[in-house]
Computed example of a mutant assay.
Amino acid sequence: MTPQRDLVDIQRIYHEPAVAEFARGREIFARFPDVERIAVPSHWNIPSLHGNAGAIEDWLRIKRTTLVVGVKKGLALRPNGRSAHFIAPSTSNGCAMACAYCYVPRRKGFANPISLFVNTEAIGEAIRRHAEKQGPLTEPDQVDSALWVYDLGENGDLSVDAMLCDNVRDLVALFRTIPNAKGSFATKAVNRDLLAYEPQGKTRIRFSLMPARIAKVVDVRTSPIAERIAAIDDFLRAGYEVHVNFSPVILYEGWEADWRALFDEIDGTISDAAKAQLKCEIILLTHNAGLHAVNLGWHPRAEDLLWRPDIQEAKRSEGGGENLRYRTGWKGKWLARFKALLAERMPYCTVRYAF
């Protein structure tokens, strides 16, 4: 992937005053002893970052050089039922990568660097208590055959977070000790430090994949697709359950040929052991008018692929926002074609869910 110093080269830390009261906060400060520190009342309200339209011009620089450190206030867990049974309280928010379709900037403003949360013990205990209340998984479902699954990285990429502190190592260790649950997160980065975390089958990593020539346009600052595919067996041998996300599926002239080539590359690269346990999620692109406007300020080329009002329609999201999705009726037909192509080229790859 992008060398670590090019992906994250922290020069400024915005932090809530209480951060130094936590061991993880002190560890982060010690890791970056010479950088500028700026105290802020809230990690959610930093005027120079959030909602600052002028930050568009510095979008990538801010992601590389700025870190926000705070205390996670809400520790509630939410039901999911798609990728996981439950969404765990996040140990981070934001990302050093800059995928053009990412939904987080819609909620957090223009610049969206990594925010790390330091009250990781409280987060871990909230997850443990919740799992204990669940008891055993009563029957297999689309999420898992035996365990409750908790999504750990809803608003960021844990592979990159792991470059900055031990939050991810602690989460992997936590799930080793919870007998009826496993953790899960999706990633577009290959961080081989995670290979030493000893997940013992209790953490699922989901490598997000798309045709490489499209990823070069929209997956900004991420690991190359070939590197992600090549990592699948390494992470499996290290004790992770390894799935893939075909996400987002972007429709354009020639998309079927590109996906066919990707499926063939996966099939020709991964081992029989990886194939035997491989499952996938399929997620067609959802876009947003506000994000479209932001992208025009820093990466208009991506919008040639993402902004297709000729085949998209407005739809209100579960969170109440107005999003653009591929048109009803046609979306179902395209999804059926995608699944048929997958079944033809990778019949062993079970589709856990698709939308």
Rank of each mutant, 00 (worst) to 15 (best):
A276P: 01
I56C: 13
N93C: 09
D34A: 14
G94T: 05
V218S: 02
E139T: 09
I270H: 02
P309S: 15
P136K: 06
R213Q: 14
P199T: 00
I127A: 04
L306T: 11
E241L: 11
R237Q: 05
W307L: 06
V69Q: 02
G156T: 15
L209R: 11
W307F: 14
L305I: 04
L147V: 13
R327S: 05
R301V: 02
F175Y: 15
E241S: 11
M1C: 01
I229R: 05
I205D: 01
T350F: 09
F32Y: 15
L49R: 14
T138S: 07
A126Y: 01
P89Q: 12
C102E: 13
V294S: 11
H50T: 13
R204I: 12
C102M: 03
A215H: 04
G201C: 08
F246P: 00
S48R: 09
I311R: 11
L174P: 13
I232G: 00
I232C: 14
I205V: 15
L284A: 09
G51W: 06
P140N: 01
S271W: 11
D219K: 13
Q11H: 11
A238E: 05
D161G: 05
I283E: 04
V69E: 07
E344S: 15
G332A: 06
Q200F: 01
P113F: 12
G268Y: 13
K275N: 08
L152F: 11
V242L: 04
E322T: 13
D151I: 02
T91F: 01
A257N: 12
D141K: 01
I250E: 10
E265M: 07
A212V: 09
G329R: 13
T2G: 00
